[in-house]
Amino acid sequence: MTAMQHDPAYNFAYLDEQTKRMIRRALLKALAIPGYQVPFASREMPMPYGWGTGGVQVTAACLTPEDRLKVIDQGADDTTNAVSIRKFFERTAGVETTEHTTESTIIQTRHRIPEAPLTEGQILVYQVPIPEPLRFLEPRETETRKMHALEEYGLMYVKLYEDIAHNGAISTAYAYPVKVEGRYVMDPSPIPKFDNPRLESAAIQLFGAGREQRIYAVPPHTQVVSLDFEDHPFEASKADHDCDLCGCGTSYLDEVIVDDAGGRMFVCSDTDFCAGRRAEGHSGRLSGEDAA
C-alpha cells in the first residue's frame, strides 16, 4: 500500500485532460439528473470493452493523488481483473491502493456493493455492461430513449408481472431494476438484488458503461426503490446460511464446491469484510480448518 510516482510516459491517470473534462462534465450532469444515462464519448482503453472500461474512465476522471483506491470484482480484491485494474492505476496514477473498504476514498467495483456501510467522502464507481434497464425488452436505443423521456415504464412492469404469473416470483436475481427519485428506471449493474437496499447510501455512486458510452449517477441520500408490486414486495435474498469462515449471518455469500463429492461451503463474497470479522475474533463452522 505504498504511494508511488505515476509512470511519466502517461498523463496522470492515463486519460488526456480533454477527455477527462468531457467525462467530468458528463458526471456533473449525471448527478444533476439521478438515474438518467448521460451519453459520453467513451475512449478506447488499453483493456477490452466489457472488462471495466467505463468504470476505469470514471475512476480516472475522479482520481486525485491523495486518493486511496480499492478495486473489487465479485466482492473480492484479489480476483484477476480487479488485480489488473488496480495495477493499471498504480502505474498510471501512482495512487495509494488499499483492500480495506473503510480506508478507501474511491472504490471501483464490478457486481457488488461492499458490506461495510459507505460514508460521506467516499465514491463508489460501478462497471456497467448494459446500462439500459429496458434493453432486453426493447433492443433499440431510439425506442428506449423515448420510453425514458415519456416515463413510459409499463413494459417493465408487464415483464416483472409475467414472471410472477409464470413462476410465482420475479425471476430477476441480479441487475434488478430500480427507480431513482421517483423518475428514472435505472440498471444498478449486475449486483445481486441482495445489494439493492444499499443503493441508498451516504457515498456518491457513479456508473460507467464504456462500450455503451453512458455515464449515470446516484447522489448520496437519494431515493432508490427496487421495482415491485404490493402483493409481491421486493425481497433482498441471499443463501440461507452463515459464512463458514467468519460466521456472519447477514452478508452475501459465495457458494464454493470443496470436494469431488459435491460438498459445499459458504463464504462471504466481500473478502475484506470477512477478513475483518475474523481478525476481530469471529469464527464460522469451518474456520478451524481455514488455511487461507
Binding site: H111, A175, I191, D254
Partner: peptide, 24 residues
C-alpha cells in the same frame, strides 16, 4: 473491438450473479 470485448468478458468471474440465480 466492442464486440470482441463484450463477447469475451463472459470469461470473467460472474459467480456473484450466478449465485443469486442459483438461490432463486
Amino acid at each position: 473491438i466492442q464486440a470482441t470485448g463484450f463477447l469475451e468478458h463472459i470469461k470473467l468471474p460472474h459467480y456473484v450473479d450466478f449465485q443469486s440465480e442459483l438461490e432463486l
